[in-house]
Amino acid sequence: MTSHSTENRERRVPAVGRGTRVRGTRQAEALNQVLTDLPGFSSAQDIHAELRRRGERVGLTTVYRHLQVLSEDGAVDTLRDETGETLYRRCETSVHHHHVTCRSCGRSVEVEGRTVERWAERVAAEAGFTDVDHTVEIFGLCPDCAGRRH
């Protein structure tokens, strides 16, 4: 199966990640609050700027480390935008899923992942691969932005 399964996500509850304590620190609590408050996906730089705006003294490297651990733990969703930058947001569901993101306004909708899982497994199996993992990012125009183009 893939490493994205809910079962794996629930078993991994790291208190320490890459040498950085994540849970229980004031910085981690502030980061979690910012992730909860920000709408949609945001870059680590935007999250860092918001933390600084709120008076938190936290370095950008620390923000990246916290986001990495939260991502590995399944607590935040990540995607790469069209420029390749990684964006983050609080995960709205514990079920494995993907996102369809608007290229124009950035609106993102979660979509169920089973169909993608089956497709990835089949494609990999046809090529002789096992122990499959995947990253899927889907971009298009949301109904509002598509309507503005007409």
Rank of each mutant, 00 (worst) to 15 (best):
L79R: 11
T61A: 13
H134R: 06
L67D: 01
L31T: 03
T6R: 12
E72S: 07
D77H: 13
L67I: 04
L35F: 09
R11K: 11
A15C: 10
V63N: 01
V69G: 10
E110P: 07
G59L: 02
G40N: 05
T86A: 11
L70Q: 11
A124D: 00
G59V: 01
E72Y: 05
G17I: 15
G84D: 07
R122C: 08
E92N: 14
E121N: 05
T135F: 06
R114G: 09
T2Y: 01
E85T: 15
E117I: 05
G147P: 04
S108V: 04
D46N: 15
E121H: 10
T101V: 15
G19K: 01
R90P: 00
S3A: 09
G59M: 01
G147W: 07
C145I: 01
E92Y: 08
Q27L: 04
D131Q: 07
G19F: 03
R9D: 02
T25A: 09
R23S: 14
T78Q: 15
D46V: 09
V58T: 14
Y88L: 02
H4D: 13
H96W: 09
L87R: 12
S3P: 03
E126C: 04
F129V: 04
L67C: 01
E126L: 07
C105I: 13
E72G: 13
C102A: 10
V123D: 14
R89S: 07
C142S: 07
H4K: 13
G147E: 08
V111F: 10
Q27S: 08
H134K: 07
D73M: 08
G17H: 09
V111W: 03
R23M: 07
S43Q: 12
R11C: 04
R52E: 14
G24I: 02
V109Y: 02
H48S: 12
S5P: 00
G19R: 02
F129W: 10
I47G: 04
T36M: 06
V132R: 09
L141R: 04
C105K: 03
C91H: 06
V132H: 06
L70P: 00
A15F: 08
E7A: 06
R11H: 08
R65I: 06
V34P: 00
D81Y: 02
I47A: 12
V22R: 11
A146W: 05
Y88P: 00
G59N: 07
T6P: 05
E50K: 12
Y88I: 00
P143K: 13
G106M: 05
G147Q: 14
S108F: 00
A120G: 06
T115L: 05
V132D: 03
G128Y: 00
R21M: 08
T130S: 08
S5Y: 00
T20V: 11
Q68C: 02
I47F: 03
R118C: 04
R89H: 14
D73F: 03
L31I: 04
V111K: 14
T83E: 09
G19W: 02
V100P: 01
T62M: 08
C145P: 01
A146Y: 04
H4S: 06
H66G: 11
T86P: 04
E72Q: 14
F139T: 12
R148M: 08
T62L: 03
A75G: 09
R9S: 11
R23L: 14
